[in-house]
Amino acid sequence: MSFVLQKVAKLHEYVANCRKDWHRKLSHQICNDPGMVFVEDLNLVGLSRGMLGKHCLDAGFGQFFNILEQTCFKNGVYFQKVDSRKTSQICPNCGVETGRKELSEPTHICSNCGYTTDRDVAAAQVVLLRGLAAVGHTVKMLAEGKFIGIPVKQESPNF
């Protein structure tokens, strides 16, 4: 019986090591070019209790975020978690809340401005806007409809 348990333990260790290796390689790939990385501050405990809980736990989101943060620190890349609420329900172009989408609906279509893109791309753009606002870039803050940060200095015309 103990031989079987040892074999199962070795298989689990192998899978965990493969996942960790993949997380490290992916984090280095992500940190190669940009100066800033923003991720959603997900409620990982809540996700693990949901319908796809086992899949979320298997993916190791928490471990990946920790590895990504460490890799960003080592490479001098700014890393920050941003508010994850309603990222897929807000139009990144005009800031209007478009409402909840079904999982079968792959496209973001804004009824206000007509902006159309993949729903995951739109959510990533909202995360980017929130991250830039958090670091002080002058962008329109989606949730409040006001500008955050230091205004861009306008050049005076040369006479």
Score class of each variant (00 low, 15 high):
Gly95Asn: 03
Ala123Lys: 03
Asn112Lys: 15
Cys56Gly: 05
Gly95His: 01
Leu68Tyr: 05
Leu128Met: 10
Gly131Thr: 03
His137Gln: 12
Asp58Val: 06
Cys94Phe: 03
Gly99Asn: 14
Tyr78Arg: 14
Ala124Cys: 13
Gly62Lys: 03
Val121Glu: 04
Glu102Asp: 11
Arg85Val: 13
Leu142Ala: 06
Gly95Phe: 00
Leu68Glu: 00
Arg85Cys: 12
Gly99Thr: 06
Gly76Pro: 12
Thr98Trp: 00
Lys101Leu: 10
Ala122Thr: 01
Ala134Trp: 04
Arg85Trp: 12
Asn93Arg: 02
Phe73Arg: 13
Glu105Arg: 06
Tyr78Met: 13
His137Glu: 12
Cys94Ala: 12
Val77Thr: 14
Lys86His: 13
Ala59Met: 13
Gln63Ala: 09
Glu105Gly: 04
Asn93Pro: 00
Ser84Glu: 10
Gly145Asp: 11
Gly60Cys: 07
Ile90Ala: 01
Ile109Lys: 02
His55Ser: 15
Asp58Leu: 07
Gly53Val: 08
Leu103Arg: 06
Val96Pro: 00
Leu68Asn: 03
Ala59Arg: 15
His55Cys: 09
Val121Tyr: 08
Gly60Lys: 03
Thr87Tyr: 02
Glu97Met: 15
Tyr115Cys: 02
Cys91Phe: 03
Gln125Tyr: 08
Cys110Asp: 03
Ser88Trp: 02
Phe79Thr: 10
Ala123His: 02
Pro92Leu: 00
Glu144Phe: 15
Val121Gln: 04
Arg85Ser: 14
Phe73Leu: 14
Leu129Thr: 06
Ser84Leu: 04
Cys94Lys: 02
Thr107Met: 12
Gly99Phe: 10
Arg85Phe: 14
Asp118Pro: 07
Leu57Thr: 15
Gly136Val: 14
Gly62Arg: 06
Gly95Tyr: 00
His108Cys: 02
